[in-house]
């Protein structure tokens, strides 16, 4: 039974998106990757979901500002294991143009375990699809 479930689950990871103080540039590209027929990330079996409790792959954008940090962690802790974290854009990875700001003192990997990085300001939808494809490989090994 477990093996059957594993085979089924491998084909449909659900994506959850967290905006950690992002400027919306990366969020627009993430929406583009999913909603525009040209890119269509749902070919990989992925689907954007509305609840963190359904999520398998988490896309996080934004520099994790002090205001939103605790809320991000609270939502992140609601996501069940196994989960793969993809940092989208340069902000969560290194702080980007907001590095050394008093309002964004942490990078994402100092707070939670990040698996894949997709730098860019914003990254192209194709690069995000690349990142999701990499996350899928990691996720399959986690099951």
């Amino acid at each position: 039974m477990r093996n059957v479930m594993k085979n089924i689950v491998q084909k449909s990871p659900w994506i959850y998106r967290i905006n950690a103080g992002s400027c919306n540039g990366c969020d627009v590209e993430m929406a583009t990757a999913a909603l525009i027929p040209r890119y269509d990330v749902e070919r990989l079996g992925c689907k954007y979901c509305g609840s963190p409790k359904h999520a398998d792959i988490v896309l996080i954008s934004g520099p994790v500002t002090e205001v939103v940090k605790d809320k991000v962690l609270r939502v992140f802790n609601e996501i069940p294991y196994p989960k793969v974290v993809v940092a989208v854009g340069i902000c969560p990875i290194s702080g980007g143009v907001f590095r050394d700001s008093y309002a964004a003192r942490n990078t994402l990997d100092s707070l939670i375990q990040v698996d894949v990085n997709v730098p860019g300001c914003p990254p192209r939808p194709q690069a995000i699809i690349d990142g999701i494809a990499k996350a899928l490989e990691i996720w399959k090994t986690m099951l």
């Binding site: 990997d109 990040v114 698996d115 894949v116 990085n117 730098p119 990254p123 690069a127 690349d130 990499k134």
Partner: peptide, 11 residues
């Protein structure tokens, strides 16, 4: 070249 996705260990 826009292929920027990489794993955390290569950060």
């Amino acid at each position: 070249d826009y292929h920027t996705a990489h794993k955390q260990e290569d950060k």
